[in-house]
């Protein structure tokens, strides 16, 4: 009997270590043509004998592409084991789950992507989707902050996102090293360098819980309306189908009604940020 909790199998096609903690995987479902996800959605990755972990999909939705991508940080039993897996190994997948970003809402707008640490993973899905149709959007900025240069994700790719100058990427680290030539400081220090049009700019923020408050304060000081701020929230998402209760914040099941929220809506949810 197939139930809500039965995973499908997926084959690992590619494994690329990113940082000492994070590894990138390309996967292909064995029984379906495509995952059919939206940017910002997640899957429950299943390692039999260990359990499941919610992981954001980091590739852009491309209807004809059979594979999808994940970037996984080692934080627990499941993710530790996942990072030991090799090309050709099979893992379980359930999903995609969650609402994801409604990309239609960004059409014709300026987009300011703000990612902290591993927050770049779900955001990458949206960034790539936007870049695939670059002319549909106005100004695009990507602000990305992480702890040290060693922790930078998608290093090789960041340059290509600039599309020869039509996208501006600013990167900062909390703590530099000998070879680091770029910015040093928390992510909010990058915001003053970006042009913000309160009518047109849509800010999309993904990062650790502590980051949101500071970034939002900065954006508010630039008069960006609440409705122009978007976020993806982390919670304990165990079942992914709105039953187990762990991801709930007030009456909202983050795994179903989130993880993507508009700030104007989020303000009405006291347990959110």
């Amino acid at each position: 009997m197939k139930t809500l909790y039965t995973p499908e199998m997926a084959v690992i096609k590619k494994v690329i270590p990113q940082t000492p903690l994070e590894t990138f995987f390309e996967l292909e479902l064995t029984e379906r043509k495509t995952l059919g996800h939206k940017p910002g959605q997640f899957v429950e990755v299943s390692i039999f004998g260990l359990g499941e972990a919610p992981i954001s999909v980091s590739s852009a939705p491309e209807p004809d592409k059979p594979t999808f991508e994940l970037c996984v940080r080692k934080v627990g039993n499941v993710t530790n084991a996942l990072l030991e897996k090799k090309v050709g190994d099979k893992i379980g997948i359930r999903g995609p789950f969650g609402n994801g970003f409604d990309i239609a809402k960004f059409k014709g707008k300026d987009i300011l992507f703000i990612a902290g640490g591993i927050g770049l993973v779900p955001l990458r899905s949206l960034i790539l989707a936007v870049l695939n149709r670059r002319p549909d959007y106005g100004r695009i900025n990507v602000l990305y902050g992480c702890k040290t240069p060693r922790d930078l994700l998608f290093k090789g790719e960041l340059k290509s996102w600039e599309c020869g100058g039509s996208v501006e990427c600013l990167i900062t680290v909390d703590l530099g090293d000998e070879s680091w030539q770029g910015d040093v400081g928390v992510i909010t220090t990058l915001i003053p360098r970006v042009e913000i049009d309160e009518k047109k700019t849509q800010a999309v923020i993904v990062g650790p819980p502590v980051m949101y408050r500071f970034v939002i304060r900065e954006l508010k000081s630039r008069r960006l309306p609440d409705a122009n701020i978007w976020m993806s929230l982390e919670r304990k998402m165990k079942c992914g189908v709105g039953k187990c209760g762990h991801c709930q914040m007030n009456d909202i099941y983050v795994c179903q009604d989130g993880p993507v929220f508009n700030y104007a809506e989020l303000k009405k949810i006291p347990e959110s940020i």
């Binding site: 004998g49 260990l50 499941e52 165990k238 039953k243 187990c244």
Partner: peptide
Amino acid sequence: CYCFDVQDYM
């Protein structure tokens, strides 16, 4: 009350 945890037992 209907919340649940999920555990694998190998």
